[in-house]
Design a protein around this nucleic acid. Structure first.
Lengths: 341, 341
DNA sequence: ATGAAAGCGCTAACAT
DNA sequence: ATGTTAGCGCTTTCAT
């Protein structure tokens, strides 16, 4: 049976008030002797406060709800891990909620977490939720809880809420610029599904780099994929027939599809075609030709999320819209473009 | 502001007791009219009970603690996902705890979850925890909480606690038997680190299949790896010089290393060498030669875990030691052994 | 320097 | 059929 402050009070011959004061560091007026005694008893019996009881009066549960589309997605599992660790060190526990990219489950999760009286909600929207009016539903549901929240990774176009996002535009720019710096002029791009904001943004970064370099825009070089292996393969097969020397695949999975397509027509990476991916999956490092890829900075992302949340708790002025810059992990899939002689 | 039963009571002109009874389905003696009225008010105001308050008196928090080594490991993220979904449908939320395979964090997590008064703990031990005396520490810590728990995936050698494990012996047998059935006689095995129980068990399954087939045991054909890509590569380089026609790599990551080694000496899979992995990572399906691999049944595993936990809650007689049988996902990395002519 | 008492939202034994 | 009341473990205001 767990010990309560009542037990301690009895044993120390003081009131529960005194015990509470001592154990909560509000003991300015309590005699040193009493403090010592109370603390000793608490220590000796491994006293830990009952979180529910404390929560009932303080209206704080010391828990955070984390809503993500899919914990099986490596990006989100990494995120969950870092968030969990960071909050743990602050005395918070994490309720995990998977939505499987279904809007209804976003909504359901928000409600459930609200019923649990979590102190804060961290949410990365389902794909479905990022579309059209659905975003308003989410936003409304979130606001209704009157609980601090922070939007992560997948954006909603509202300014009046805290967000920590990956700078996908910069990521797309980084990948393309790298190719340009190596002398490539004819660079194709296999995008993600354009309904997803990250896809649109990576493409935007690509375009930015192309235009900045004064390269003529060629619509035919950008093909819309769906972030899956197959679409990378299919589009690469098409693109490889054109006059290109490099491909920017907007995620690693599609880049793997590009490798496959190259293999079939006996193209070598990077000798015949340079390739850059996005996500930097663990797998990219053990490929026969390790893939150069844009890496989201999950650690920094997590840190900012935690900081933003704690900032809201403390009513501190916080930077509402944070962008985390990804970086390029250079490996072996990019070579200098051959000089046209 | 959330509504309380007090608010409902006032509005309905009844006592809180009546409201409580109605809302908890203990209203045998309450008049139909009162029931209707109370329910209507509750519904109209989206009343939800305060979990902490309920918990304080019922001593139930409706939360489960999940302790796993690493949510970034695909097996565990899949597990977490299914467990979360299953418990959610029963009204439970999940506290996620990562241990990073560190014993101290297992212990810390158990304590933290205990302080949170979770109703049950699901734990998959850290590697460190599975070694020697450490297991006793875990077991003791778990028992001390007086909270129902179930051990998952990574075993501890005690009979008096609930466990749901993967049948790794059977998995190893399955992989090896498949190779034997295809006519292979000289089958090498690259094991995991022998301190880990799954590694020892997969090897045991391999041995069992070999002996059952009456194939002479050849110690030289089994090499100890560490479940990492590099060790698969290194050992394969050695093994490929010997007179073998097939390799059983005890996880997919090492199998990928085998592919690499084959590539370097121009061996083709499966024409020159047949290969079976273990884990069936998503990646194995998109390899140039898709890998045949043993797949743990995560869904069944999760279901049994949940059932075992709920069984304990209800004091039902439960099967304490469950073994989940993996299955073989056949793809293209295995061919019939060439007939010696 | 310390304690009494009220109250957080709810359940349940015990009236009536 | 419904209400009164005593907690669950804790914080905090107001007395002393």
């Amino acid at each position: 049976m767990k010990m309560t402050i009542k037990d301690i009070a009895r044993e120390a011959n003081v009131s529960v008030t005194t015990v509470s004061f001592v154990l909560n560091g509000k003991a300015e007026k309590i005699s040193a002797e009493t403090i010592r005694k109370v603390k000793a008893i608490a220590d000796r019996n491994n006293y830990v406060p009952n979180v529910q009881a404390v929560g009932l009066v303080t209206r704080k549960t010391k828990t955070i709800g984390l809503i993500i589309p899919d914990i099986e997605n490596m990006f989100f599992s990494a995120l969950a891990k870092h968030i969990e660790t960071a909050f743990l060190s602050q005395g918070y526990n994490i309720f995990l909620m998977n939505t499987n990219d279904i809007l209804a489950r976003d909504l359901e999760s928000i409600e459930l977490l609200n019923n649990r009286n979590v102190d804060g909600i961290i949410i990365s929207l389902s794909k479905e939720a990022t579309q059209g009016k659905n975003m308003d539903k989410i936003y409304t549901a979130l606001k209704m809880t009157e609980t601090p929240f922070v939007i992560v990774d997948r954006d909603i176009p509202r300014d009046d809420c805290a967000k920590v996002l990956n700078d996908d535009v910069f990521g797309g720019y980084l990948a393309t610029k790298h190719l340009i710096d190596r002398g490539h002029m004819n660079i194709a791009c296999i995008t993600g599904p354009m309904t997803v904001s990250s896809a649109a943004q990576r493409l935007q970064g690509y375009r930015q780099a192309i235009e900045e370099a004064g390269i003529a825009w060629n619509e035919e070089l950008v093909l819309e994929g769906d972030y899956q292996f197959e679409s990378g393969y299919k589009h690469a097969s098409t693109l490889l027939k054109k006059d290109i020397t490099a491909i920017f695949a907007c995620n690693d999975l599609m880049a793997y599809g590009v490798y496959r397509a190259c293999l079939e027509i006996d193209y070598r990476v990077p000798q015949d075609i340079s390739l850059v991916g996005f996500d930097d999956l663990m797998f990219s490092s053990i490929l026969e030709v390790p893939l150069t890829s844009v890496k989201q900075n999950v650690v920094e992302l997590s840190e900012k999320i935690v900081a933003t949340m704690l900032g809201q708790f403390n009513g501190e002025p916080i930077d509402m819209h944070l962008m985390i810059k990804p970086s390029l992990t250079e490996r072996s899939s990019v070579a200098d473009a051959k000089r046209s002689v």
